[in-house]
Write a protein that binds this DNA or RNA. Structure first.
Lengths: 205, 205
DNA sequence: ATCGTTCGATAGCAGTGCTATGCATAGCAT
DNA sequence: ATGCTATGCATAGCACTGCTATCGAACGAT
């Protein structure tokens, strides 16, 4: 059989591309190849050209994000956990804005990485936990509910990254949006979602 | 005085760039210049290169969007009008997805067109009208409220355009998000926001 | 009519992603 | 151990990108 591909090259290419994004530099074919100590052809043997590399970057970015969200251990307050998850999501996005933009920038490649669904699944599980604890109305469907939380969060984050809203908008506007939605899902009469009112800060772990 | 710039060229360049986006084609310097019946230099006399042209495109896109939203005449139900404005916003975004993406894609140009504030101002005015009619809690601050509506709408639209949500999400998820937020602002006890529950359809005018 | 100034067309620059071409290398059969 | 073969990868060149230097030409003021 023929010579096997040096699998480390593939990882290095994704690493370098991700690092370039984090550094705010442009991700270009030759720059990536050089920094990964290979030639431009590496991008074509391991990926389907530049779009393929960017897809791999998105895939890994979503996977990392999902891992970060899962790393948050559930507490005894599943509604507060839901907010913590959102907080961690926001924190990750702001920690690497260029990467976050790439994650949602399907150029001409409409594929969505499997890992994106993983990230989403964390939200769904969070809603289901809150329902199991009788904190949210059991008639609320978890998937649509998670979708709405995701859309709200992504909406504010996206506008902030687009310079359309100041960074402070995350602290000022996202909590009341969560509050309104959680109340609509039954967290109102039972007890006030104080967790949300406490503000929007970096997650503990 | 010297020779005056042919101001029609400037408009034609913006036209052509916008049309290319609507056609789903890539906007390239030579393509734009050719289609506008001028040379590549036109982009540099009338704009600050390609970024300048794209900024002008965004500026006009926001202005057109603001005009469309203003064209919606207020009815006797200001809360329903708020929803209609959102509906028109969504419709405009879906009518030209590539243009909408460009509107919020600040490449390395952090400037935000004045016309973006115009669009936003329509939302603020809508909230104020609802308060004047005693339909929303007067303690709600219009600017933050409008920001939240904008973020929710943009969030869902953005995820749909990123292929992260199906188009149907606009009909299924945006209305309940509006409902929850409007209820939180006082539209609950008084009367049900039936306007929202009616669904998410194309605005009349 | 003349002049001066600015527009805008032409050509060339470095850089982009991509492909065609070789060549060295790693695995297998012998 | 030794060929053979199929594959990874480097090189060079392609058409294309945005941009700038140059220069002719058109217009307004005088």
């Amino acid at each position: 059989m023929p010579r096997p591909a040096d699998t480390t090259v593939r990882e290095r290419l994704i690493d370098v591309a991700t690092d370039l994004l984090a550094a705010g530099e442009e991700v270009t074919l030759r720059k990536v190849a050089n920094a990964a100590d290979t030639s431009t052809m590496g991008v074509y043997t391991h990926f389907d050209g530049m779009p393929g590399l960017m897809y791999a970057v998105r895939e890994r970015a979503f996977a990392r994000l999902a891992a970060e969200l899962i790393a948050l251990r559930p507490t005894t307050d599943p509604v507060a956990d839901l907010v913590s998850t959102g907080s961690a999501y926001v924190f990750a996005a702001l920690a690497d804005p260029a990467l976050y933009r790439v994650m949602f920038d399907i150029g001409r490649d409409p594929r969505q990485p499997m890992s994106a669904s993983m990230t989403f699944a964390v939200l769904v599980a969070g809603v289901e936990r809150a329902q199991a604890d009788d904190r949210l109305d059991p008639k609320v469907e978890p998937i649509p509910a998670a979708t709405q939380l995701w859309a709200m969060t992504h909406g504010v984050v996206s506008l902030v990254l687009a310079e359309a809203l100041p960074t402070a908008a995350l602290d000022e506007h996202l909590p009341p949006m969560y509050t309104a939605q959680l109340v609509a899902w039954g967290d109102g009469p039972r007890r006030a979602p104080a967790s949300v009112r406490r503000g929007w800060r970096r997650p503990a772990s």
